[in-house]
């Protein structure tokens, strides 16, 4: 595809996205990412954003079926985001616990709408009391010891992992990029190259790579995804849990415990850390789930919870 036809393609997607924002502004679940753009820009749907130059965040052209990055690019971005997260948080290296998280997470990923990634989904426990979990665009998913300590059963761990998998499936991290330089590079084909690069081009592409990494880290650690992206990830997590046979209401139990932890944090008038800084109030997410994704879901689990919870306790006893 040459440059002009790609620009036409991206412009077409932008037009369609803008049209959806105009016509269906009330459908927050189905159009989460499109609405995020509208909210972020304070735009009510004028023709101003139809021009390519008006693309302000990548969520306008990134969705589950369409990314301006190749799968290989997503993987390398993910690796550098993961490596930088691991500069800030040490890994919890107990093999048994990490193997358990990986088996559980990879089973859930198979049940997602995007089971196959360039490298696949892998999981790692972070050695911190902070209550948090992160996902990179390359399928590297982190969960903290603090978060695992809040869970009391396998389906609750599954709920947290399924939510993170959903962020990868929907490419929320890439969609959060708003760097004009990165967006410009994608539009101008700066990252399209057949061979190894050197000199000024190597420096330029490496800088854009660094900026892409920083933008995603900023979303994961400081800014948070949009509320619409969080709701979309919660709804997809319910679907994933349901397909495997876990109780989808487990996500509500974890959120309520997170809410209690957050209230305790506020009472101690400490600075918000971890998820509190980057996520909507858990109770608001519970309310959202109860009125949408969970409305018609049977509450009972279909897996053998006795076996699941025994291995949960064995694997995470030291957490």
């Amino acid at each position: 595809m040459n440059r002009s036809s790609r620009i036409v393609r991206i412009a077409m997607i932008t037009i369609v996205t803008a049209a959806l924002v105009v016509s269906c502004a009330g459908l927050s679940g189905a159009l989460g990412s499109a609405l995020a753009v509208g909210e972020g820009l304070g735009v009510s749907g004028s023709g101003a954003r139809l021009a390519l130059a008006g693309v302000r965040t990548l969520s306008e052209v990134v969705d589950a079926a369409n990314s301006p990055f190749t799968p290989e690019q997503e993987y390398y971005i993910g690796r550098s985001v993961a490596a930088t997260i691991l500069k800030q948080y040490p890994a919890y290296t107990t093999v048994r616990a990490n193997r358990y998280i990986n088996s559980l997470g990879q089973v859930l990923a198979l049940a997602s709408d995007r089971p196959q990634l360039y490298h696949g989904y892998t999981f790692l426990i972070l050695d911190t009391d902070e209550i948090n979990a992160f996902a990179t665009p390359g399928g590297h998913i982190f969960i903290s010891r603090g978060m695992l300590r809040l869970t009391t059963s396998e389906d609750e761990v599954a709920a947290v992992l399924a939510h993170e998998i959903a962020h990868v499936v929907h490419r929320h991290g890439l969609g959060s990029i708003r760097s004009a330089r990165v967006i410009g590079a994608l539009q101008q084909g700066t990252l399209d190259m057949l061979d190894e690069v050197s000199g000024a081009q190597l420096r330029e592409v490496t800088e854009i790579f660094g900026e892409t990494t920083s933008e995603i880290l900023d979303t994961l650690i400081t800014r948070g995804y949009s509320g619409a992206s969080e709701r979309e990830a919660d709804a997809s997590a319910v679907e994933i849990l349901n397909r495997v046979g876990y109780d989808p209401h487990a996500i509500v139990r974890v959120l309520e415990r997170m809410d209690a932890a957050q209230r305790a944090e506020y009472e101690g008038s400490r600075e918000p850390v971890g998820f509190s800084k980057t996520h909507p109030r858990p109770q608001s997410r519970v309310n959202g789930l109860n009125t949408t994704a969970l409305r018609n879901v049977e509450p009972e689990s279909r897996i053998r919870t006795d076996v699941a919870d025994r291995r949960f306790r064995e694997a995470l006893s030291g957490i």
Binding site: Y76, D192, M193, L194, L202, V205, T206, T212
Partner: peptide, 17 residues
Amino acid sequence: LAGRGFNQQIEAEYQEQ
């Protein structure tokens, strides 16, 4: 494979920087 953009070469360069 054209247009691979971010790849092992770029990762190595970034890692060094």
